[in-house]
């Protein structure tokens, strides 16, 4: 489904991704864990063409997208929806218009179908009665859900989540994590989740990939990771056990 081959990305003299080799299979929920600044978000942004790698290749659905132009990336972005760290909603638009935005840009649909799909997407993230509100009128947790609805309304084959629970309280964190799991199963999507949260990764991931200093230091199923001897993974695991 998604394959990274020897992916390298630098900013000035600092190399963030140092030759990432990774293969994400269709239908998997893969958690990318790592400390801040290890290149997790950079990996996601390279996937949808928001950043360009210095070298290496990115393959999506047997298509090499590494050197795609902005125009060529449009169909890729239609099938790979990204949920950002910030809700990134457009303040000047209502919630309805925020969710309909991508539908209007990517497809030519009649207004009644747009409305139907927007309502469906909102019910998938368990939100109602917010259509006419502006982003500033709802809570941060609700904004995160709207952001998720704005992505799933496009019915992407791949969902990319960039720290979806950052800044949320534990209750909302749990509900967003359940949403990620349910959406991936219900919509039959492939999901890549960038996170610091090992506790959640152990609960819902099919596979966990641990990044450190721009390189993959360990990967495997949650059960395999529990046996890991890599110090960073042990640190993450001990923190997760403290939460249990």
């Amino acid at each position: 489904m998604i394959q990274y081959k020897k992916l390298i990305k630098s900013f000035g003299t600092r190399t963030i991704l140092k030759g990432i080799d990774l293969h994400i299979k269709a239908g998997e929920i893969v958690f990318i864990l790592g400390t801040s600044g290890t290149g997790k978000s950079v990996l996601l942004k390279n996937t949808v063409g928001l950043m360009k790698p210095d070298s290496g290749e990115i393959w999506i659905d047997d298509e090499n997208v590494t050197d795609f132009t902005e125009q060529q990336f449009l169909p890729v972005r239609k099938k790979c929806g990204m949920v950002f760290q910030h809700p990134a909603l457009f303040d000047s638009l209502s919630i309805y218009e925020n969710i309909a935005f991508g539908l209007r840009k990517h497809f030519v649909l009649p207004e009644n179908e747009i409305k139907e799909r927007v309502e469906q997407a909102l019910s998938l993230v368990n939100l109602e009665n917010v259509l006419t509100k502006r982003p500033g009128e709802i809570s941060y947790g609700m904004q995160k859900r709207v952001s998720l609805a704005r992505t799933v309304v496009l019915r992407p084959k791949v969902l990319l989540f960039d720290e979806p629970t950052t800044g949320l309280d534990p209750v909302t964190t749990n509900s967003v994590n359940s949403l990620i799991q349910n959406l991936s199963r219900k919509l039959n999507t492939t999901s890549m989740v960038v996170s610091h949260d090992m506790h959640c990764a152990l609960k819902i991931a099919d596979r966990i990939v641990v990044l450190d200093q721009g390189q993959i230091v360990d990967q495997g199923t949650p059960q395999e990771l529990l046996q890991s001897q890599v110090p960073l993974v042990r640190d993450f695991l001990s923190e997760a056990r403290d939460l249990l």
Partner: peptide
């Protein structure tokens, strides 16, 4: 800085 511009690109707009 709140990634709205990246979101616009991801949602198929320039």
């Amino acid at each position: 800085v709140t990634e709205q511009i990246d979101a616009i690109r991801c949602l198929g707009a320039d």
